[in-house]
Design a protein around this nucleic acid. Structure first.
Lengths: 247, 247
DNA sequence: GCACGATTGTACGAAATGGTTACTTTGTCA
DNA sequence: TGACAAAGTAACCATTTCGTACAATCGTGC
C-alpha cells in the first residue's frame, strides 16, 4: 500500500497521517509556506460537506461541489474519509457529538422542577432553532431509515441523556406534588422534541402553504413561549406560574 | 414535433393521449389484447414513483428502478411526465390532493368545541400515522426548500382549510367559555401537526437512539392519547373531561 | 382482414459523478 | 545546497443515470 493510497481503517487506526494544509490566511496572502494542520483540513472539509448534505441531501450533494468549496481538494476528501458515505457519516457523528457535549454541560439539579422543565424545554427549542443544520441532517438520516446511525461506531450507544435528565426532573416534580403522575419520560421527551423539531424541519412547506414564516424573530419568540407553556400544561397538576416563559 | 416526442404542456392541454396498457391480470395471463386505460397507467407509474421518492428521496430515486417497478416502461414515464422533476411534482401534487379531499369531507360543526377539537386532533394524528408516505414526501420537499411546491400550479394556492376549521372550532369554544383566549389558530395547527408529524418523520432515528418503536401499535395508541390530551390541556380553560381520548 | 395511427420495448448516447492515478510542490535534514 | 519524503493538484477513468431514437406491436375504423 503506497503512501498516497486512500487511508484504510487499519491505516487510520495505526496512526494519524500528517498532511500539510495551507492556512486560509496564508493561502490568500500567497505565502510560500504552510502550516501542517490536518485537523484544520478535516474540519474545513467536514464543515463544507455538512453544508452540502444539509442543503441537498445525501444523494443530492456532489463530491465535486464539496471539494470546490473546501480550501483543499477532492483528493484530500478521499484521503481522510474514504468515500462519500464515510464523509457523510463523519458529518453526522460530528453533529451528534456536539449536541451530546451540550447535554453533558447542563446541570438543572439546582432548579425547582417546574423551572428546570421550563429551562430544558426552552434550551431544546433554542438549540433546534439555532442549529437548522442539525435538524436537517436528522431529516436526511430519517429519509435513509437511520441506516448510517446504525452502522456508526461512535453514535451506536449514544442513548441521549436528555431522557435521564427529564426522568430526574419529573421524579422531583412528582415528589413535590407539582407534576401529575402517569407520564413517561420518553413521552415527555417526544413532545418537547417534536414541538422544537417541526418548527425548523417544516419551515419551508409551512411558509409556502400558510404564508407563515416561522424563522421570523417575533414568530419564533411567540412560538417558543407557546411550546414551553404547552409542555408545562401537559405535566403540571394545576396551571402553575407560566405567565412569561423564559429559558 | 413527432408523435413519439415527449408530450409538451401544450400537447397535454390539447387533449389527453390515449396510450394502451396491459391490464395486470391480462399481462400475467399473457393474453394478446390489452385495454386502453391511460389513467390506470398514470396511476400505476405515480404509485411506483411515490414509493421510490419516499424511500430514497428525490435525488436518490432512480428512474430506471421506478420504470422496472411499473407495469409499463421508462418510455411511458417520459411520455406522461416529461422528466424526473415532472414526475416528482406529479407525485407531490397527488399527495396534497388526497389530504385536501379528506379535509373537505370533514364536518365537525355538529360537535361541541371540545369534542370537535378532540376529533380533529385524533384524525390528524391517524392520517399521519396511516400515511407515512405523505409524511416522508413532505420531508423530502422540505429538504428541497419547498421548491416544487412553489412552482406547482395546482398546489400553489392550496391554503389548507384545516386552519379555517380550527378557527371555527376555537371561536365556538371561546363563546362557550371552554377555551381560553389569546391562542392563534395557526399556532394550534402547528402544535397538532408537529405532534402528529414528528411521530412518523423521526421514527427511524428515535428507534435507533432510544430503542423506542413508535410504529408499534400500543405505543402508537398511547402516543395518540397523549397528543390529544396535550392539545386539549393547551386550549381548555380548565381540565376538561379528557379521561380517555378517542377519535 | 387490412391499413393506419397510437402505444410501447429495446437499445443507445451524452453528460454527470464517484473514485483513482500520475505527477508537482513543499518542508526537512544530512 | 541537494536529496528525500510528505502533502497536494489536476487530469483521467469507469460507471451510472437521465433522457431519446427507432422500430416493433396492437387496437380500431373501414
Amino acid at each position: 500500500m503506497a503512501a498516497s493510497d486512500p487511508p484504510s481503517k487499519a491505516r487510520e487506526r495505526r496512526g494519524r497521517p500528517q498532511p500539510a494544509a495551507r492556512d486560509d490566511a496564508e493561502r490568500e496572502a500567497g505565502a510560500p509556506g504552510w502550516k501542517q494542520d490536518p485537523d484544520a483540513v478535516r474540519r474545513n472539509i467536514l464543515e463544507t460537506a455538512r453544508r452540502a448534505f444539509v442543503d441537498k441531501g445525501l444523494s443530492g450533494a456532489r463530491i465535486d461541489e464539496i471539494a470546490a468549496g473546501t480550501a483543499t481538494s477532492k483528493r484530500m476528501i478521499y484521503y481522510y474519509f474514504g468515500d462519500k458515505e464515510g464523509l457523510y457519516r463523519a458529518v453526522l457523528e460530528d453533529a451528534y457529538m456536539r449536541i451530546r457535549r451540550l447535554e453533558q454541560s447542563l446541570d438543572l439539579a439546582a432548579l425547582a422542577p417546574i423551572d428546570a422543565l421550563r429551562t430544558l424545554t426552552g434550551l431544546t427549542f433554542d438549540y433546534h432553532a439555532d442549529n437548522p443544520d442539525f435538524v436537517r441532517l436528522v431529516m436526511v438520516e430519517n429519509i435513509h431509515h437511520a441506516r448510517h446511525l446504525k452502522t456508526s461506531q461512535s453514535i451506536g450507544a449514544l442513548n441521549h441523556m436528555a431522557i435521564g435528565m427529564l426522568a430526574d426532573i419529573y421524579a422531583r416534580g412528582l415528589e413535590d406534588g407539582v407534576f401529575r403522575a402517569g407520564i413517561e419520560p420518553i413521552d415527555l421527551h417526544l413532545t418537547i422534541s417534536a414541538l422544537s423539531f417541526y418548527n425548523v424541519s417544516n419551515q419551508s412547506t409551512i411558509k409556502q402553504i400558510f404564508g407563515h414564516d416561522m424563522a421570523q424573530q417575533d414568530a419564533r419568540g411567540r412560538r417558543r413561549a407557546t411550546v414551553i407553556e404547552t409542555v408545562l400544561r401537559h405535566v403540571c397538576v394545576v396551571e402553575a406560574d407560566r405567565s412569561e416563559a423564559n429559558g
